[in-house]
């Protein structure tokens, strides 16, 4: 009995970490872009979905998941940069309502475009053989692929943290997050910094889209599912707060990971319970000091 319980705990912990990794990778860009630019991008997860489809297409044509992981996020980030330059920059100073109108419209266009190209059905993407197996831990047999997702998230977070803290560019980006006017007055082109931040946010979400493909498949509704999750994370974490998003993504990971093990039929409600709970105690979210 205790043995079975231990294996349930291990399985729950692995699910928790996997969910945490994925949802933070998706939500990080959304909250950072909102924090720095005041821009609410409802099309954020449409790019995540696009990365999933791109991964599917690349795997289908080349058979290489690794190629998909290397290429799809870059392609999606580049498309995102084009869209940001052409459309989003015009609305950085506009109301959130205008921003939502534009980005929700864009999300529909991307979603319908994906349906036109790839149809309504869901696709599965096979993980590379080396990641396809299972491993045993404390009596539980668990998918290796989950460990892979967690490692991808960890590596990306470490790389980005090192770049932010250790490089000249990171120094300027951090400064621009605090006082963009001052950074401009010191002679830096703040617009370029914004585009870069935007691209990195989409790159992260796109990486999530690629690694998600073998886990849950690629399907037309994946952008909407992820958008609801991400908004919950961003709002409960405090609009614009990266640490807040990290913590709430972890909380959601716990309720998803263990909730789906122990109370699976109610799992769909758990994120909303977390959101409600956090906002009851802290109406502006965990790290939301400033009124948005």
């Amino acid at each position: 009995m205790t043995h079975a319980f231990a294996s349930l705990l291990v399985a729950g912990a692995l699910d928790t970490l996997t969910f945490w990794s994925l949802s933070f990778m998706i939500a990080a860009g959304l909250t950072v872009v909102f924090g720095m630019l005041g821009f609410l991008n409802a099309a954020h997860t449409a790019f995540y979905m696009l990365a999933g489809y791109a991964a599917y297409a690349i795997v289908r044509h080349t058979g290489s998941f690794w190629l998909a992981l290397a290429l799809a996020p870059v392609i999606v980030a580049l498309i995102g940069v084009a869209v940001e330059r052409l459309l989003f920059t015009r609305l950085y100073r506009a109301s959130h309502a205008s921003q939502l109108l534009l980005t929700i419209g864009l999300a529909y266009i991307i979603a319908e475009g994906a349906k036109i190209i790839w149809g309504d059905s869901a696709f599965t993407v096979a993980p590379p053989p080396i990641l396809a197996g299972r491993f045993s831990l404390l009596g539980a047999t668990l998918p290796i692929y989950h460990l892979f997702i967690i490692s991808v998230a960890l590596v990306l977070l470490c790389v980005i943290s090192v770049l932010l803290v250790g490089t000249r560019l990171g120094m300027v980006v951090r400064a621009a997050a605090v006082y963009p006017e001052m950074v401009g007055a010191l002679g830096f082109k703040v617009r370029t910094i914004y585009t870069l931040v935007f691209a990195v946010g989409l790159f992260l979400a796109a990486c999530a889209g690629v690694v998600m493909a073998p886990l849950a498949g690629v399907y037309p509704g994946m952008a909407d599912d992820a958008l609801v999750q991400s908004f919950i994370i961003v709002v409960a974490g405090g609009l614009g707060s990266l640490p807040g998003a990290f913590i709430v993504a972890g909380l959601l990971g716990v309720v998803q990971g263990f909730g789906s093990v122990f109370f699976s039929s109610y799992a769909i409600f758990f994120p909303f319970i977390v959101l409600g709970g956090v906002l009851l105690v802290r109406p502006h979210g965990l790290f939301g000091g400033r009124a948005a």
Binding site: G166, T167, R168, L169, G170, M171, V172, L186, G187
Partner: peptide, 14 residues
């Protein structure tokens, strides 16, 4: 950094 034009190597360690 900006004034001296060293920004052209943005990836270099700060």
């Amino acid at each position: 950094l900006r004034h001296r034009g060293l920004h052209v190597l943005p990836w270099r360690a700060a």
